[in-house]
Amino acid sequence: MADKNILLSEGELLVSSSPHIRAEETVDWLMWQVVIALLPAAISSVYFFGFRSLFLMVLGVATAVLTEAAVEKALGKEITIKDGSAAVTGLLLAFNVPANAPWWLVVLGAIFAIAVVKQTFGGLGYNFVNPALTARAFLLAAWPQYLAGNFPLPLDTITGATPLAILDGTAAGTLPSYLDLFLGNVGGVLGETSALALLVGGLYLIWQKVIDWRTPVAFIGTVAVLSWAFGGNGGLFTGDPLYHVLAGGLMLGAFFMATDYVTSPVTPKGRLGFGVGCGIITVLIRLWGGYPEGVSYSILLMNLLVPFLERWTVPRVYGTKSAQA
């Protein structure tokens, strides 16, 4: 050991707390994974509803990202648009409007989602309800004429009722086949119709361990069981669970909205309970509520219950008998 030249003087070495290595996943990576997972649904939406659908999606993303940048700039905060969370919100918002919605509806919705729901409460990580869904609820309350009633039918220029509205008895029409429902060849908002595309994206997220399987499985499972039990006209257990699972916004909600990190519980059991709760409220609204569809309100209502779910589902601490008080 001849040379002693590696004696470093104080201050040359970086000192920080353990751990000194970190997993590769970053917030940015996670959010862009969600964008990737939404692409199949986006593509199927363009296929079924035409290029206006693409226009609305681009508009939603662009407005959300610009709003995020503008608000953060105005508040003197770090600009975080490249983390992808605003893009996800903008895309999900566009998924929630029909193809014949006016362009400004998407713009105002995206601004509301980012500026009011997200940034007002402190930006990513601090909003207590899902921005895209809250914006959808806002749009529905503000301009109900565009978001309730008849939606454009795929591959066509006429509008018609959504499958759930027909099932609900609030609209006339013939129910589409299971295959059409599964592929997305039905009326509805941009991103919700193709169960197949959403399932592909959702399974990709579960495979990449971006989302926890518990929330979607509990959500969809609860809807299936309850709609089977109570959804029929001929008494208990005469409902059509498959129809209820494939129709409406359930796939979109269960895989992409109820799994939103910020607004769902951090505990595994809490996520299970979150999914079950969403399922119960969805079926309540679908079968007995004033609206034909209840996925978005069910998720928003459960968002508000997250702190309680987390308190009720604390994991058992090692070396203790039961969960902490």
Partner: peptide, 21 residues
């Protein structure tokens, strides 16, 4: 096209919140 939500109760709360802020 008026945003009906603004004359509904939620509109009042959102508006008031921003005025306070």
């Amino acid at each position: 096209e008026p945003a009906i939500v603004m004359i509904l109760p939620p509109g009042a709360f959102v508006c008031l919140g921003y005025l306070l802020g």
